[in-house]
Amino acid sequence: MRTTPFHPRLSELNDQGLYTHWQGTLSPLRYSHAPKHEYFAVRNSVGVFDTSPLYKYVVTGPDAERLLARALTRDVTTCRPGQAHYTCWCDGDGYVMHDGVVFRHSANEFLLTAARPALSWFEELGSGMRVELEDVTEGYGMLAVQGPRSREVLSSLMPEAETLGYFDHVPVKVADTAITLSRTGYTGDLGFELTVPEDSAVDVLDAVLEAGRGHGIRPFGEEALMTLRIEAGLPLIDVEWHDARLALSDADKVTPKELGFGWMLRGVRDGSRRFVGSEAIRKELTDGTSRWLTTGIVVDWADWDRLYREADLFPPKSEHPPPYESMILDDHGVEVGYCTSFVYSPVLQRHVGIARVRPDLAVEGTRLRLEIAINHHNTTVRVTTTKMPFFDPARKKG
């Protein structure tokens, strides 16, 4: 089992020793007995998360932009040097395979991150092009510094953090090390990510922790991250969707439109932009054949409390998302969708979820019912569709 470049220091701060694995690399579930403490560190102050297991591919050469424009769902030609795009890529039938962030460093140089291995697919797609792809995953660590005080902490080390725009990136120097600072993250809050050479990772981490000492900085693990990303309405591979190449049936596949990525599809409907899967997606858009649309749902708290109190139970408010889908029904008991992620939001003090429903029911304010189990019996609780993100502070982009 691999460890990340930051592991030597972060493991010293982990008093639980609880890890999962992220594509064969140790990833902490939590650092302390209470992941909620880690969650509130991010929402109220500043936390750090080790994102090093992300795959990292450097794409260079005269045809680098051409390859990525052919591969990525979002139009990479609109991404200027010093900017980053969140994007995804699809198979030939228009179903989503992976998502990631592409960082543009110059006209012919990009860095692409992915949660799952994708190098061979890009290499095959770029065959015959003047482009080089290099897997630099092991050569760099990535550290997410997230929360309302993240800018203040990092500005004391690198003045560039004070004025860096949302989804912009810039070369900086910390602890005598050249790194890349980006205004990105997976928490839906003000935040940054640092891409650091592997051999200097601990030095840079130590500098960040020291700068954050007076701000209550602390590391957070995957359990806290799950609550944070659901509040932010951010999808997760193998939860909101499955890699189309590995799915056993079309029921486990999803298109960008169905996943809530319709905003990435500029130029697809009129055929002015083409990429892998674009023709299938164009047909879906013009014919209106989307099976589902993604929406947020908010639970009627009074109905939730009533159901549990009538069963002589205290109404639970758990920040641990259940590891399964729950059916969504209409008032007639007909299944009309399913909830992929569900959690009690401590900052909103409401139960919220990411759901996929029939397109005609995705309009904000639609009242539906979510299936839950109480005392070993299935019942339903009232929910209302709503826009995402649920938590969207002005500081995130400001």
Rank of each mutant, 00 (worst) to 15 (best):
E335Q: 15
V254L: 14
R266Q: 15
V268W: 02
H320C: 06
K257P: 00
S272C: 08
Y324E: 13
H320P: 00
S290C: 12
D287R: 15
P316Y: 09
D252L: 15
D252M: 14
F314W: 10
S341I: 03
F314Y: 11
C339K: 06
R291T: 11
A355R: 01
V254W: 06
R369M: 10
V334G: 08
K253V: 04
G260E: 01
P256Y: 10
R358L: 04
H351Y: 12
A251L: 14
S278R: 06
F314T: 15
V336K: 05
D250F: 10
L246W: 11
L368E: 02
D270F: 08
V343Y: 07
W241V: 04
P359G: 07
R356H: 15
L348G: 04
W301F: 12
R282T: 07
A247Q: 04
D360E: 15
R245L: 15
D243T: 08
V336E: 03
A244R: 03
E279L: 12
P323Y: 06
V343D: 02
L248Y: 11
P359C: 09
P359E: 03
P359D: 04
A355T: 05
E284D: 10
R274E: 14
D305I: 11
V343F: 05
I354A: 00
A247C: 09
V299E: 01
D312S: 14
L361V: 03
D305T: 14
G353S: 09
E284A: 08
L370Y: 04
Y338V: 07
A362T: 01
R309P: 00
V334W: 01
P322Y: 01
A355N: 00
T289C: 07
G337Q: 03
V336D: 07
D287N: 15
D250C: 06
P321V: 08
S272Y: 07
T286A: 09
E240A: 12
C339I: 06
W241R: 05
I281E: 04
E319A: 14
P256S: 09
H332P: 00
W263R: 11
V276Y: 04
S290N: 12
C339N: 12
H332D: 13
P321H: 02
V336H: 03
W304Y: 09
T255N: 05
G353N: 08
P321E: 01
T295C: 02
L361I: 02
E240H: 09
L368M: 10
E371N: 11
T294R: 15
W304D: 02
D330Q: 10
Q349Y: 04
A302E: 15
R350L: 12
D312H: 13
R358I: 00
A355I: 08
G288K: 06
F342I: 06
E371I: 10
G365S: 06
F275P: 01
R358M: 05
R274M: 11
G333D: 02
